[in-house]
Amino acid sequence: MQAFVKTLTGKTITLEVEPSDTIENVKAKIQDKEGIPPDQQRLIFAGKQLEDGRTLSDYNIQKESTLHLVLR
């Protein structure tokens, strides 16, 4: 499924993900596309910070959801 990641600069990245993907996995995909190390990434969805060990389905993130990427 497709999900979108919006950065603070307003850029939107499109990712191909599965509901079973972990947040860690998603961060690795963002690193592949953008070169941002996962340890600098914080992903926010519905106002919550997403934890590495959880999956997209844990957070009820469905296709075409938009996550927000904040860098630390």
Rank of each mutant, 00 (worst) to 15 (best):
M1S: 04
Q2M: 14
Q2P: 08
Q2A: 09
Q2S: 10
A3K: 01
A3P: 01
A3H: 02
A3F: 14
F4Y: 14
F4H: 10
F4D: 03
F4S: 05
V5A: 03
V5G: 01
V5L: 04
V5P: 01
V5H: 01
K6W: 07
K6C: 11
T7W: 12
T7A: 05
T7Y: 13
T7P: 04
T7H: 05
T7D: 06
T7V: 08
L8D: 12
L8Y: 14
L8K: 11
L8P: 15
T9G: 13
T9S: 13
T9C: 13
T9D: 14
T9I: 07
G10T: 03
G10I: 02
G10H: 04
G10L: 03
K11H: 11
K11E: 08
K11A: 08
T12L: 13
T12Q: 07
T12R: 08
I13T: 03
I13F: 12
I13S: 02
I13A: 02
I13H: 03
I13K: 01
T14K: 09
T14Q: 09
T14S: 10
T14H: 08
T14F: 09
T14D: 05
L15C: 02
L15R: 00
L15V: 09
E16G: 05
E16Q: 13
E16K: 09
E16V: 12
E16S: 13
E16I: 14
E16F: 14
V17D: 00
V17T: 03
V17S: 01
V17M: 04
V17Q: 00
V17F: 05
E18S: 15
E18N: 13
E18H: 15
E18Q: 13
E18G: 08
P19C: 07
P19T: 08
P19F: 08
P19K: 07
P19V: 08
P19S: 09
P19H: 07
P19Y: 08
P19E: 08
P19A: 10
S20I: 06
S20H: 11
S20W: 14
D21C: 05
D21L: 05
D21E: 09
D21F: 07
D21W: 10
D21G: 03
D21A: 06
D21N: 07
T22W: 05
T22G: 03
T22Q: 04
I23P: 02
I23F: 02
I23E: 01
I23C: 02
E24V: 07
E24I: 11
E24N: 08
E24Q: 13
E24M: 13
E24S: 13
E24T: 08
N25R: 14
N25Y: 11
N25A: 14
N25S: 14
N25P: 00
V26P: 00
V26L: 11
V26Y: 01
V26A: 02
V26M: 06
V26Q: 00
K27Q: 02
K27P: 00
K27R: 05
A28H: 12
A28M: 14
K29Q: 10
K29Y: 07
K29S: 04
K29W: 04
I30T: 01
I30Q: 00
I30V: 05
I30M: 03
I30S: 00
I30H: 00
I30N: 01
Q31P: 01
Q31K: 10
Q31T: 10
Q31L: 10
Q31E: 10
Q31H: 14
Q31N: 10
Q31C: 11
D32C: 08
D32Y: 10
D32E: 14
D32I: 13
D32A: 14
K33R: 10
K33C: 07
K33Y: 08
K33T: 08
K33D: 03
E34L: 15
E34W: 15
E34S: 14
E34K: 05
E34Q: 07
E34F: 11
G35C: 05
G35A: 05
G35E: 03
I36Y: 14
I36W: 14
I36R: 02
I36K: 02
I36E: 02
I36C: 04
I36F: 12
P37D: 08
P37Q: 06
P38T: 15
P38V: 15
P38L: 13
D39T: 10
D39P: 07
D39C: 11
Q40N: 10
Q40C: 11
Q40Y: 09
Q40T: 09
Q40G: 06
Q41H: 04
Q41F: 14
Q41M: 14
Q41Y: 14
Q41A: 04
Q41R: 01
Q41V: 09
R42A: 10
R42H: 12
R42K: 11
R42T: 15
L43Q: 00
L43W: 01
L43T: 00
L43R: 00
L43P: 00
L43C: 01
I44A: 05
I44R: 06
I44P: 00
I44Q: 06
I44F: 15
I44T: 09
F45T: 02
F45I: 04
F45G: 02
A46F: 09
A46L: 12
A46S: 09
A46Q: 15
A46H: 14
A46K: 15
A46W: 09
G47S: 05
K48R: 12
K48H: 12
K48P: 01
K48G: 06
K48E: 12
K48C: 09
K48I: 14
Q49F: 14
Q49E: 15
Q49A: 12
Q49S: 11
Q49C: 13
Q49K: 09
L50C: 04
L50E: 00
L50M: 09
L50H: 00
E51S: 08
E51L: 11
D52M: 05
D52T: 05
D52R: 04
D52Q: 05
D52I: 05
D52P: 06
G53C: 07
G53N: 12
G53K: 12
R54G: 05
R54V: 06
R54I: 05
R54S: 07
R54E: 05
R54Y: 13
R54C: 09
T55M: 10
T55C: 06
T55Y: 06
T55Q: 07
T55R: 11
L56Y: 02
L56C: 02
L56K: 00
L56A: 02
L56P: 00
L56G: 00
L56R: 00
L56N: 00
S57N: 10
S57I: 08
D58F: 14
D58T: 05
D58S: 14
Y59Q: 03
Y59D: 00
Y59S: 02
Y59P: 00
Y59V: 03
Y59M: 03
N60P: 04
N60K: 10
N60F: 08
N60L: 08
N60E: 08
N60C: 06
I61G: 02
Q62I: 12
Q62Y: 11
Q62G: 14
Q62R: 11
Q62N: 11
Q62T: 14
K63N: 15
E64H: 12
E64Q: 10
E64L: 10
E64T: 08
E64A: 08
E64R: 07
S65I: 09
S65F: 14
S65T: 10
S65C: 07
S65K: 07
S65N: 08
S65D: 12
T66R: 06
T66D: 05
T66M: 09
T66G: 04
T66F: 09
L67I: 13
L67Q: 02
L67K: 01
L67F: 09
H68W: 15
H68A: 06
H68V: 13
H68K: 07
L69P: 00
L69H: 00
L69G: 00
L69Q: 02
V70Q: 10
V70R: 11
V70G: 05
V70I: 13
L71Q: 08
L71Y: 09
L71R: 08
L71I: 12
L71H: 08
L71D: 06
R72Y: 11
R72D: 11
R72Q: 12
R72C: 11
R72F: 11
R72G: 10
